[in-house]
Structure formats: structure tokens, C-alpha cells
Design a protein around this nucleic acid. Sequence first.
DNA 1: TATGGGAATTGCGAAAGGTA
DNA 2: TACCTTTCGCAATTCCCATA
Length: 395
Amino acid sequence: MSIRDKLTRLLGPEPAASPDRARVEQAMRGSRRPADIAEVVEGEDAGGGTFLVRRGHDVPVEFSEADPRWWAALAREPRWAGARREDVAFLDLETTGLAGGTGTVAFLIGLARVRDGRLETRQYFLRSPASEAAALARVEEELSGCTHLVTFNGKCFDLPLLETRFVMQRRELVTLPHLDLLHPARRVWKRRLEDCTLGRLEAEILGRARHGDIDGAEIPQRWFDWLALGDARPLAAVIEHNRLDLVALASLAGRLARLLANPSEAVHATDLFSLGSMMARDGDVRAEPTLGEALARGAREAAPELARVKKRRGARDEALPLWELAARDPGRRGLEAGVELAKHYEHKSKDPARAHAVTQGLLARGDLTTREREGLVKRLHRLERKRARTTGGFV
DNA sequence: TATGGGAATTGCGAAAGGTA
DNA sequence: TACCTTTCGCAATTCCCATA
């Protein structure tokens, strides 16, 4: 029995080849010789087996006009307030998989930065795992010339992975004030969009749909194929994907800053509500007018949030009509608003009979959790005792 | 498929208000 | 005045989701 036969018995038959893999193998079998990365993508040798792809782009207008203090608010990191746009780096990695740890390699490290009035992308491609030390040295050099860093989901993915690679190469990754756009993007748009992937945001928010873009899950295999077969043709789409991600990051950073600076520019009332909620959470005094405008533009869900802001300010009388409005909502917001109304009538209006009626109405709902029901029953019993004391009896 | 940030939920203690 | 109840804010925990 041959070694191949023994392995087949041990591991089972080989999995079916992916369409891309089949194409690469076809190219290998046919007359077309494998193409080097330099034949497929315009770039230059950056030393140590690293291939550098540079491209220039128009700086997104919203990015060039953004006031850095809004990035400070988005990042919840005051050090952003003093950022110069020219010193901001955008980072995006293409790797051999999602799993962290030492086994995952970043084979394409994309960086972007404004230079001489243009947004320049620099993508460092590793011809082999052995090129990593040289690539990381270049990245270290690039980042040490920057003061701030922007990523998408970089807190969980890009930065921990890059940090591990730096440790593996006995280097230290420079620590910069970091804005991970995923989280502010979720805060602003998750109520309206199906999800908050970068692709979705690019299409729905920036109005740029990509055609023929590679699925992220296919990316690792294309690099493995390159290592095995030496044909770089399937990698062109990976490099393009990474470049477009970098440009999208700059646009998104600009768009978010602009919306936070001028919330009224939000096209959708729901987005305006989200901006107001974000401001309320961050203690921004513009929360109240922003939520008020969202409500006026039809976002009824802004009513309870606006009422909470007013209540916190001590303006309970202004909050009352908002709770009354929200209480008509058959959903969870209506329940929360109803409880607030009951509290108001009991403790502020000193009208236990009215509070009792509101509580009884809430108990008739069919969507209460055990915990909510228990809370309402407790409230109802207390109100009954209270009313019995004030009227000398209870119905 | 692993990972971890952050929103949502839950738990706890201090403060305030009400009652005997 | 002392005790009890409720509210509110902060801390701890849970769950969701985006990345290649």
C-alpha cells in the first residue's frame, strides 16, 4: 500500500475542490504558466519577500472636512480631539482565517493615509510566511509616523491578530488612540439596517455597491493556493477588496463625524433617533433637541428616550405627555412608558386611583414576563392599600 | 470557526420619601 | 423618630455580532 493510500484510509477521500481552486489547477494543467504577483498587480518589491501596492485616491470630502472632536466622541477617547487628518492611519488585514492565536497569518496588510492631498493606500503583500518579518518592519515604520488609527472591527480582529504577529517576530506594535468604526456605526444604523457589516454600510450609507467583490471566506484559500501553485491571478481580487475596504473606512469615518456634527442632516428619522440616543448616553446636551426633532419627524420610538432625558433633567412635567404618547405603543416601549406613568401618578400627582388603573391596564397585556408581572402585581397591591387608606375602603 | 467589545439585562446599595 | 418601600445609578453578567 502506498503512502497516498494509507493517508486516504486514515483521513478519508480528499474534499471536492472549490471553483477557484479548480480554476487555478486548470491554469496549471493548461498551457498558461502561473503568473507572479508582479505580473498581476502593479506594484514594487519592498524587500524581504514583501510586495508593495500603492494607489492614490481622492480624499473623501466628508473626511477632509471632519472636525476631530467628533471622532473623539465616536471613539469615546479624548485623545482624538487633537488629531490631524494627515496623521490618521487606516488599517485592514487579510488573513489566513478567523481563528486568533499564533497559527493565523496576516498575508496582506493594508494601510491608508492622507499624503500630499491624496488618500494613499499602501498594501504589503507577503510572498511567503518568511516575508512576515520584513512586512512587519515596514508596517511598524508606517505606523510610528502616525498618531491615530482607524479600523472596522479592529478591536476584536485586526489589532489582536497584528499584535500576536508582532510578538511572534519579537517586535512591539505601537499603541495609538484607536477608533473602531464598527461600534459607532452600530449605534447609529443598527435600528434601520439588516446588519452592520462594512459591505452593507458601504452600499446603504455611502451609496457605493461593489460588483464582483470577493467573499471574505474565500480569501484564505487564495493565498494557500498561491503558496502551493505560485499563481497570483486569484489574488488580484483580494488586493482590490482590501483597497476598497481602506477607502470605505475613510469615507465612513467622515460620514459618522459629519452626522454627529450635524444630526439634522440624517435622512432617516430613525437615524436621528439613534444619534439622539447616543448623545443621551454620552451626556451630550444636544440629546434633547435631537430626540425632539426625531420625534417630530415621525420616529415615535424617540418618545420614551426623550422622556428619560427630560426626567433626568428634573423636567417631569415635560416628560409626562411623552410617556402618555409612548404608552399607546403596544410593544415593549408601551410597557416601560406605562410603568413610568404609574410612578408619576402615584408619587408626583398623588393620584393612586389613576396609577392603579394604569397598572391594571398593563397587567391585562399578554406579553408580560414572569418578572414583569410580579412587579406589576406588587405595585397594584401597594396602590390598593394606599387607596384604601385615603378613601377609607377600596372597591 | 474564535474572539472580545459593547448593548442589554440583572443585581445591589445608597438616598429619598412615606407611614406608624 | 425609626422603620419600610421605592427609585435611581452604578457594577456585574449575559448575549449578540463582525472580522478572514
